[in-house]
Design a protein around this nucleic acid. Structure first.
Lengths: 166, 166
DNA sequence: GGCGCCATGTAAACCGTTACATGATTCA
DNA sequence: TGAATCATGTAACGGTTTACATGGCGCC
């Protein structure tokens, strides 16, 4: 249950449904992590069994009813304990980097294409992050976007330098 | 078998044992991916069943004998096909970023400690990457280290900016 | 003597995505 | 009419780490 603290952390902010959590992760937390419904719903169920969250079923007009989860004291204590532990190392899987490394003996024009395609997709991501940033009003949400923005820019600069070594 | 192409790509360079592969990933490819023995050995076995690699048992003096794997034509073809496909998106899990986000309401001195600890570990990583880089003589190996170096530097700069918003 | 490296492997447990199943509403 | 969004969930499959099991050699 490795998305346990992701869920607990979000519920500490405000009560949410599984669907809401998924959207929030997609919209705001994507530079930090990713989590699909298939993970999120079971995590919520197990957290409920543990007594870390409460559920309340809420009917809505013209919409399916939703289950709104909120933190219990136990859940808050669990979150606080986690917050005071040193963070785990980042885990990454960068297929592009691996492919570039193994592609080194391909003809130069193919390598160039690989680099340019990466630059284009990274620029597109950079643009969408800029757009995202403009919509944010809270400092700590900016921290996250700014992190992603910095890494994107660093990668674009690096791609240019790699291209120059060809 | 998602480490299939990692193994195939390394064996295209030179024949290697499972142990060698693990070390190479740890030493050189760590910015791109990670793979433990528990994944690598089964992948080699399945690749052998598929006919993508050959094995040769090599006795050594004062050492356990090793199984040296090499690419077959089929394995090379598999690798070439993969190389011409567009790369998958990077997958990341950044616990620190998540923790920072959820820690935003902690007392300022605790937040500062979190940021400073991160800066210290990132600087340590930066230093070891610099040392690593000095030992490398091949351009494409430098690409990988330089990538990691750029991202580390970008993160350190970002950490400084975050600190200034407190 | 103990630690760490070389070297191979398995098993259990856990994690995680994808696809599937359902169904109402809104908007083009 | 068809697609997207809201909303919950399960099942199958596959991936991954961790711990365990084994054992010799070299170094401090």
């Amino acid at each position: 249950m490795s998305h346990k603290y992701l869920v607990l952390g979000l519920l500490a902010e405000q009560p949410m449904s599984g669907y809401d959590i998924r959207k929030y992760v997609e919209d705001v937390l994507h530079p930090a992590t990713n989590a699909s419904y298939g993970t999120l719903y079971p995590v919520l169920h197990r957290l409920h069994d543990e007594g870390a969250v409460d559920v309340r079923e809420v009917d809505q007009d013209n919409r399916p009813s939703k289950k709104v989860y909120s933190l219990t004291d136990k859940g808050q204590a669990l979150l606080d304990a986690w917050l005071h532990e040193p963070p785990d190392d980042d885990k990454v899987r960068r297929e592009f980097l691996l492919k570039l490394y193994f592609a080194r003996n391909l003809p130069e024009d193919e390598l160039l294409t690989l680099l340019e395609q990466r630059r284009d997709t990274t620029r597109a991501l950079l643009d969408s992050l800029h757009a995202e940033r403009d919509e944010l009003d809270e400092t700590h949400q900016r921290w996250i976007v700014d992190y992603a923005l910095s890494l994107c820019q660093a990668e674009i600069d690096w791609l240019q330098r790699v291209k120059e070594t060809l």
